[in-house]
Design a binder for these strands. Structure first.
Lengths: 104, 104
DNA sequence: TTAGGTATTGTGTAATGCGAAGTACTGTGT
DNA sequence: ACACAGTACTTCGCATTACACAATACCTAA
């Protein structure tokens, strides 16, 4: 797979998951894996970055099956950002699709 | 626009254009601009890189409207590469689309 | 001769995916 | 008691690529 395709798009994918319900890193990676090929060392930095930018808040919760889990939750700002970026993504893919079809 | 979205995709767009007919840099930039926002300093490095990788051959042709133009032409290898990468792109966008819809 | 469109090239920077390695907790088998 | 597997998170550093900025140079028309 072309690594480059994922640039910026993984942010959207992660936010999409968390938009539905609070999730912890490991869970997010597992979910993502059923759609696209990603690794922990890709996802965790995204979580940290988006948290730092104010799009997520986090809270720790104990688990009976291993180490404590850090849950991520979208902030109001995060929701707005998610919708804005997802819209841009849609527009971008439509434009590329159009180009590929028209030129073919 | 999210700069990151373009990573890797511009290669495909450029190849798609050249696949139709031989084109020179400036012409490619102009065409691309009717679909997506790009600059010359983005497109020329792509042309140079893909040429170096053996996907394009080039030839110079005089012009009556300005400096000589360097035309780019897809090699056999370039055609194969283009089709492979374009297919991956389709698969990738479909996967992301699916994720965004299912999770919503 | 000056302005503007045409055409290419080079340097440097920022963003981000990801391999590699490491820490730490829990439960199971030996 | 010990090794191991599964769960969960973190950090480091490299490679790739878009693009701002800048420089160069050709041609035509006012």
């Amino acid at each position: 797979m072309q690594t480059q395709f994922k640039k910026g798009v993984l942010d959207i994918c992660v936010m999409a998951l968390i938009a539905k319900k609070d999730m912890y890193g490991y869970e997010i990676v597992s979910e993502l894996l059923s759609y696209i090929d990603v690794t922990e060392s890709t996802v965790y930095p995204i979580l940290r970055r988006l948290t730092k930018e104010g799009f997520f808040t986090t809270y720790i919760q104990e688990s009976s099956e291993g180490p404590a889990r850090k849950y991520y939750q979208l902030t109001q700002e995060g929701i707005a950002h998610y919708q804005a970026v997802a819209t841009e993504w849609q527009a971008f893919t439509v434009a590329v699709q159009k180009l590929l079809q028209e030129v073919q």
